[in-house]
Structure formats: structure tokens, C-alpha cells
Design a protein around this nucleic acid. Structure first.
Lengths: 109, 109
DNA sequence: TCATTTACTATACTCTGTTGAGTAAATGAT
DNA sequence: ATCATTTACTCAACAGAGTATAGTAAATGA
């Protein structure tokens, strides 16, 4: 059985979906994480994690029609399910509580 | 080879060490995480993660003398090494960037 | 001497993260 | 039409991180 808490990368994926809203499909999700964290994200890692998150019931997905542009294949769009939003919220609350009062130390390297 | 980024539980352990300062040994580390996150932490999970973090060079440890109290065995005290502080800082920065502008959505439920 | 308390360890296993390569379906050029 | 190119997604194998169950070790107190 999967664990209740979010993995570190799972959390980034959920946050990217939250941020992207209607535009949340594989490629922009990867770009969003790369742009905002500075790390590089492989497609395989992203899509596999997306599938696992869907299996756990934290996100849902739906295929869309292909778009008329070069290489414009059909996209699979993702959105958060209530359970996923709750997990994200819980993960944030945990970290805020752990950081509480120590933000200054953190910011001065 | 271990990965560069912090695992989800590793991050909690490092934060507990940061918070506890001179008092950072196994038992209080576990209690700090339990009290601030509400989840239960097994001793095995904590000590194993501590050992792995030390092997990676992110924390250091030192055995202290036993204390004169019932069951007062020698404690192993932990402290952050510069590399660990940097990883913690980087993990926080990544999440802040991902959350940026979306805190309100997160707080409403 | 032995039960009790505090602190730490061993082992095995599952879940999560990462890599390297590959497939599929669209358009554009010749 | 055919084939290179672009965009989007998939497979399979493995390494790393997280968890559970159980147990050991070294103190004190009765």
C-alpha cells in the first residue's frame, strides 16, 4: 500500500498541476518544475509519477483532441482531486510547523 | 549514489536537528517531528535515516557520556554540517518558488 | 540479581525516484 | 506519397528512501 504522506517529487508534481490549472499536461508540468526549482526533470520520471499519483486517487486525467501544429499530438491533461489538494495542504502545514521560527536562519544560508 | 535532493523524511530530520541545537539526539528528534507534524515516527526509521544522512556528509554525530538517571544511556548527538544546511536551504527555496503566489489557495481548506 | 527505563540497532521489505531508451501521432518538406 | 522532424507519452530495470517488526545494550532502582 502506498504511504499517506507525499514524496518529495510527488509534491513538486502536484504543485505544478496546481499552478498550471487548465494547462496542466506533461510537458508544461516538467517545464514548470525545471523553471522554478532549477533542477532537470526527465520525462519518464514525470509521467511515471503522474501515473502513480492517479492510481492513488490524488489526481485525475483526461485526453484531449490533437491540436493543429507541428507534432501536435493529443495531450493528457491532469487536475487535482480533493484528496490530492488535501495531501498538498497537509504537507505544507507540516513543513511550516517544522520551519516555524527558523526562517531567518534558513535565509542566511 | 545518493541523490542530490532531500527526501521528504530526511528534510524533517534535518529540520528537527536544526531546531533542537545542542539537544539533538534520537529521542527528542523523534518527539519534535511527532509534535510538529502530528505523525508518528518509528525509532528505526529515525535512526536509519540519521545514519544515512551522516554517510552522505550532511550531518555529523558524537557520543556523549551517560547521564546519572534511570536508563540514562549514552546519547548520540547530531549536528548539521554545512552541506546539510545548504541542502535544507535549497529544499526550502525550491518549495517557496513552487508555492509562490498560491499560498491563499493552499490555506483555504 | 533482576525488572525497568532510556537509547540505539538489525533486517527485510515496499514504495518512490531516476535512468536510458523507445514508441506514437501529428505536421512540413521534397 | 514518403520521410524527416516535432511534440507527447511509455517501458523496463534499477537504485534510493521510507517503514515495520523485532531485538540489543547500558544505565538505575528495588
Amino acid at each position: 500500500m502506498p504511504r499517506e504522506s507525499l514524496g518529495e517529487f510527488e509534491q513538486l508534481i502536484l504543485l505544478a498541476i496546481l499552478r498550471l490549472g487548465q494547462e496542466a499536461y506533461g510537458v508544461p508540468i516538467i517545464e514548470e518544475i525545471e523553471n522554478r526549482t532549477g533542477r532537470s526533470v526527465s520525462q519518464a520520471a514525470a509521467y511515471l509519477t503522474l501515473r502513480r499519483l492517479e492510481q492513488k486517487g490524488w489526481i485525475r486525467s483526461k485526453m484531449a483532441m490533437p491540436t493543429p501544429e507541428r507534432g501536435g499530438r493529443a495531450k493528457r491533461f491532469f487536475s487535482l482531486k480533493p484528496a490530492g489538494t488535501r495531501r498538498l495542504h497537509a504537507a505544507r502545514a507540516e513543513l511550516l510547523n517544522m520551519w516555524e521560527g527558523f526562517e531567518p536562519e534558513m535565509d542566511t544560508r
